[in-house]
Design a binder for these strands. Structure first.
Length: 569
DNA sequence: GCCGTTTTCGGCCCGACTGTTTTCAGTCG
């Protein structure tokens, strides 16, 4: 039974969900911890099992190890099936309704037989829910409102969609005279690829006025709750937003706590306790005395470790590295000197080459590569060989008029189902940059599709593999790739894997970037922009690289043009 | 269910807010 770590983890997370309905709160925690360990394990869980080392992994003991073996052998877990039978509810759907947690879901099933959102809506409308213990008229009304929201906006949102929204709220609050400091925290600050809600922290000595302003903003659709230090609203855009107010002395502790992740918070608090201290959102305490709290770095230092950048805070080994002083210096948001994949109106982009170059120049870039589609991709208005030659001449002309930025001549070629490219080698040879990517036939078996990419990488003219795994967030799974082979071929042939910055791609993704770095690969962060505005998406790609522990030395487009040209040949 | 430089048993992160209660359980982050 071939199973990915992620699939095994998913089953254990599911067990945790169901155990949450029972009384012992620590069993679901144990399963969740084990699931997290497996989800971000860099080795294949099946290999660990074959070596008999399951119980060496953190959070995995005898019992869970046995269950993992069952999952690996059979593809499913009898224990989970039993749990599902005893409370056969659509847990994900029901728990996406604000205010419904495991305990209430169980109560609703036991008393009213509710298993899904439709059942829930019917029973609420028949006023059956208000009669249950711990429920009332208000809970029933809220459930009805929240079902609607859950149906419309059930899943998490893309970072690229929520980030600008969060930044505009931050600016609104900053413009108030009574706010001293405003910061966006939560998974947005960690630049996670998908976002559940927006968390904003504020320092002010007038909390009530800030809360009033916040809950009355034009962009607010409804207020979910409002207290003196914390309020939650639902925005018209379909995202929830929390605002919390703190005093200056504790802002660092609050920022750290509300940045999360939940997993790293639990771990840091445990470390605080081990050192006879206590960590919460108000500070780090020794007895009653606050020993740190104004800023995050003093808290990290007092806990005996280096400062951990927000993008790394997932409890995937960063704490150990911080204690040992071995965290990488992450590639900075201003270190990218050029963008090596973008499209103009010569193919499916919306603007001229000059428009793209001007925006890139304003962003401070030294170089860009124009990589319009060519060859067989007709939907993307791919250039034929004559048009491609025309474009090369055009770029030469434009370069003469530009100052401080150089346009490299490139192309994005399609890798066909056999691994062949759709432009002749002699023409590819004349270009500065060749990006090769797959655009169809995604669902081939592992061996075949891996071979396709490897064959493209073995072409001496190819420099970059575009969006290497083809995944689209919340939309399409990645190809069945043998990434280890891809990494090896990348090294052997000096072909660089792309970190594509499109909001729904972010491909390679963070954990694969980390693996690639561990194997010694270098990568390139590109936007694949189809308009000048999309060039700004580079920040999403940089964030993803940072989440993958990348330093500038791992990313080739942090190099000067001169050095870049050397490694491209 | 896991874990151990205070431990093989007794802990396990912690606080705000809500609604339904009359002191608290459930949810959320």
């Amino acid at each position: 039974m071939e199973m990915e770590n992620k699939e095994v983890a998913k089953i254990l997370y599911k067990v945790a969900d169901f155990l949450e309905m029972e009384d012992n709160p620590f069993r679901p925690k144990a399963y969740r911890r084990a699931a997290h360990t497996i989800e971000f394990l860099s080795d294949n869980i099946d290999d660990v099992r074959k070596k008999g080392q399951l119980e060496d992994l953190p959070g995995i003991g005898k019992n869970i190890a046995q269950k993992i073996e069952e999952i690996l052998d059979t593809g499913y877990l009898g224990y989970l099936e039993d749990l599902k039978l005893s409370v056969p509810v659509d847990f994900d759907a029901l728990s996406s309704v604000e205010g419904l947690g495991p305990k209430k879901i169980k109560l609703l099933y036991k008393e009213l037989g509710i298993t899904n959102l439709d059942d829930l809506e019917i029973m609420a409308k028949r006023h059956k829910i208000r009669r249950l213990k711990g429920m009332g008229e208000k809970s029933e009304k809220k459930i009805l409102e929240n079902i609607e929201f859950a149906r419309k906006h059930g899943s998490r949102k893309l970072l690229g969609y929520v980030l600008p929204l969060a930044q505009s709220l931050k600016e609104k609050l900053e413009r108030m005279e009574i706010t001293e400091k405003v910061e966006v925290a939560g998974s947005i600050r960690r630049r996670k690829e998908t976002i559940g809600d927006i968390d904003i922290l504020v320092i002010t000595s007038h909390p009530r006025q800030v809360m009033d302003f916040f809950t009355n903003m034009k962009v607010v659709k409804e207020v979910i709750n409002k207290g003196p230090s914390k309020s939650t609203v639902r925005l018209k855009e379909g995202v929830e937003c929390d605002l919390r107010v703190f005093e200056k002395e504790m802002f660092g502790a609050a920022l750290m706590y509300f940045t999360g992740s939940k997993e790293i918070n639990v771990e840091l608090r445990r470390i605080a306790l081990q050192n006879n201290m206590k960590l919460n959102e108000y500070g780090l305490f020794k007895g009653k005395k606050r020993v740190a709290g104004v800023n995050e770095s003093e808290i990290f230092h007092k806990l005996g470790m280096d400062y951990i950048e927000p993008e790394l805070r997932e409890n995937r080994g960063e704490i150990k590295a911080a204690i040992e002083g071995k965290l990488p210096i992450l590639v900075d948001y201003n270190e990218i000197r050029g963008d090596l994949q973008m499209h103009s109106n010569w193919s499916d982009g919306s603007n001229s080459i000059i428009d793209m170059a001007h925006t890139a120049s304003k962003m401070g870039y030294e170089y860009i590569a124009l990589t319009d589609h060519a060859g067989s991709l007709r939907i993307a208005q791919g250039l034929d060989e004559k048009r491609l030659k025309d474009q090369m001449k055009e770029i030469d002309k434009i370069n003469e008029t530009l100052d401080g930025i150089t346009i490299l001549k490139g192309v994005e070629v399609n890798i066909d189902s056999e691994g062949k490219l759709d432009i002749k080698n002699e023409l590819l040879n004349d270009l500065d940059i060749v990006v090769a990517s797959i655009h169809s036939g995604f669902r081939q078996e592992e061996e075949k599709i891996t071979y396709r990419i490897i064959k493209a990488m073995e072409n001496e003219n190819v420099n970059i593999i575009g969006h290497p795994t083809g995944r689209k967030i919340q939309e399409r799974k990645s190809y069945n790739l043998d990434l280890e082979k891809i990494f090896q071929t990348s090294m052997d042939n000096k072909v660089f894997l792309e970190i594509n910055s499109q909001p729904n791609r972010l491909d390679l993704k963070d954990v694969n970037i980390k693996k690639a770095i561990e194997r010694g690969c270098k990568m390139v962060i590109n936007t694949d922009a189809h308009s000048p505005k999309q060039l700004k998406n580079i920040d999403l790609g940089i964030a993803t690289a940072r989440r993958g522990w990348a330093s500038s030395k791992d990313i080739i487009n942090t190099l000067s043009l001169q050095k870049l040209e050397k490694i491209l040949n």
